[in-house]
Design a protein around this nucleic acid. Structure first.
Length: 428
RNA sequence: CGGGACGUAGUGUAACGGUAGCAUAAAUGCUUUGGGAGCAUUCAGUCCGGGUUCAAAUCCCGGCGUCCCGACCA
């Protein structure tokens, strides 16, 4: 009896409060921000701070869902950590001092107690795990969240790729020793590849060796090739299928020798879309997160942390896949699956037919953005190209005469007359 | 944080120290209708605070804000 309200699968553009705009704002140079703002996906509040609007939020949620699935598959448990951070906790790991961490946003309670706005969460998650990890039998464990991070960057840039407030997926792992940790590390690596492949960035992404910190020779970054990026990596051409590279920051003769990389490399400009990091006991020791092993011995937990910037990922997808005409979303993260465009031009029968089709698609569980606006064809097509939904259906006098609908694909630009059944088959 | 550029209707752009204009968007009407239409009418602007001057969008000082290059990015 009870049916989910169909409204959540569909959106009429006459109802959507955001508008597209023809021109990009003059103060945005980055392609990602220009297109996302023009299409009404985000709104810039101030330098490095963007609010997310309905279409943009749908993309963010889709990306989250792709990431969430992979995190769950490797045993990650979703949580939500607080943004307000206590000074005392961070002093224990020597990360409160502005001389050590220069991008804290700090604030105060009414009684002058100092607080920070979380820029990462190793400390609080470690503190929490002290309540729940006692024995080697409790390990390994991992937990992740999607949460807004605050970083007081000296310079925000590249549109939404480097902001002061941004949504991030951060995963933390807890293992009994390095060996157990590395097993999980490899699983995260695979999960990350799945994620970047699913969101359409796999081909342009490189598993990159970067500086590792205290407990590991290297950390690993997933770097996606784009001119909007701020990192430089070197990819060994001889490595064939392997999408591996070395970050410029560690590209020394010694490292090249270590990784058996010759001089046959190409330089690429990239953006860091993910990272995986061995933390070892950097946090568990100062904070006292220990477990007891089989011999009754108390040992510090061996940790790792793994991040993916959700907003940055959205921006990178735009950078990599968009054309001059507009964005192109892979189906996995598109705000809607289909863009239904009606060109009824005052023909009530045709309009009703379009509405019926809209409702039918929704009832079949297909997400539809319905351009029911009373606008000219050119404007509608231009907006559809800008918004970048992968499948488009046009219903018009022309299609009516042929007894067909028109289907076109944003990615291939292929446009064909097809029956409704054929189209439903494509959308399956 | 160092250097540079800049700030004019919702958006994008003009204006020598002397009438703030154009385009677009928005509103109304008529025409038009498969790739950002046409005509007419309307709405709408000089970031903030000082100073110079008969007169400041324009020159000077301070602030705020934005972008770019660099540094930084644990």
């Amino acid at each position: 009896m009870s049916k989910a309200p169909p409204i959540s699968n569909g959106m009429k553009q006459t109802h959507l409060f955001t508008k597209t705009r023809f021109e990009a704002p003059k103060d945005e140079v980055a392609k990602n921000a220009q297109l996302l703002i023009r299409a009404g996906f985000v709104h810039k509040d101030m330098a490095g701070v963007y609010s997310v609007l309905p279409l943009g939020l749908r993309v963010m949620k889709k990306i989250e869902q792709v990431v969430r699935y992979e995190m769950n598959m490797i045993g990650g448990q979703e949580i939500s950590l607080a943004s307000l951070q206590s000074k005392e906790l961070w002093e224990k790991t020597n990360r409160w001092d502005d001389a050590v961490v220069d991008n804290w946003f700090k604030t105060k309670l009414k009684n002058d107690t100092e607080l920070g706005l979380g820029f990462t969460h190793e400390e609080p998650i470690t503190e929490i795990m002290k309540d729940h990890i006692r024995s080697y039998k409790d390990l390994p464990r991992s937990a992740y969240q999607f949460q807004t991070k605050f970083r007081n960057e000296t310079r925000a840039k590249s549109g939404i790729l480097r902001g002061r407030e941004f949504l991030m997926k951060d995963l933390y792992s807890f293992s009994r020793n390095e060996e157990q940790h590395l097993k999980f590390y490899e699983k995260v690596k695979e999960a990350y590849w799945n994620i970047f492949n699913k969101v359409g960035l796999g081909e342009k992404t490189y598993y990159t060796f970067a500086s590792g910190g205290v407990f590991a020779k290297f950390s690993h970054e997933f770097q996606t090739e784009t001119d909007a990026g701020e990192d430089v990596i070197y990819h060994n051409i001889d490595s064939g299928e392997k999408k591996e590279a070395i970050n410029k920051e560690v590209y020394t003769d010694e490292v090249k020798k270590d990784l058996k990389v010759g001089d046959n490399v190409i330089e690429k400009k990239t953006v860091e879309v993910g990272n995986i990091f061995t933390l070892g006991t950097r946090f568990s020791e100062p904070l006292g997160l220990t477990y007891v092993d089989e011999n009754g011995e108390s040992k510090p937990v061996f940790m790792g942390s793994y991040g993916i910037g959700i907003g940055r990922l959205m921006g990178t997808i735009v950078e990599v896949l968009a054309t001059e005409k507009g964005m192109i979303w892979p189906e996995s993260v598109s705000p809607f699956k289909v863009h239904l465009v009606e060109l009824s031009q005052g023909d009530e029968m045709l309009k009703q037919k379009a509405i019926d089709l809209y409702e039918e698609l929704i009832s079949k569980g297909i997400e539809v953005l319905f351009d029911d606006r009373d606008a000219r064809a050119g404007e509608k097509f231009a907006d559809a190209d800008l918004i970048g939904i992968p499948h488009r259906i046009v219903i018009s006098k022309k299609t009516e005469e042929k007894g067909q609908l028109e289907y076109s694909n944003r990615i291939t630009s292929e446009t064909t007359g097809r029956s409704k059944e054929e189209i439903l088959n494509i959308l399956k």
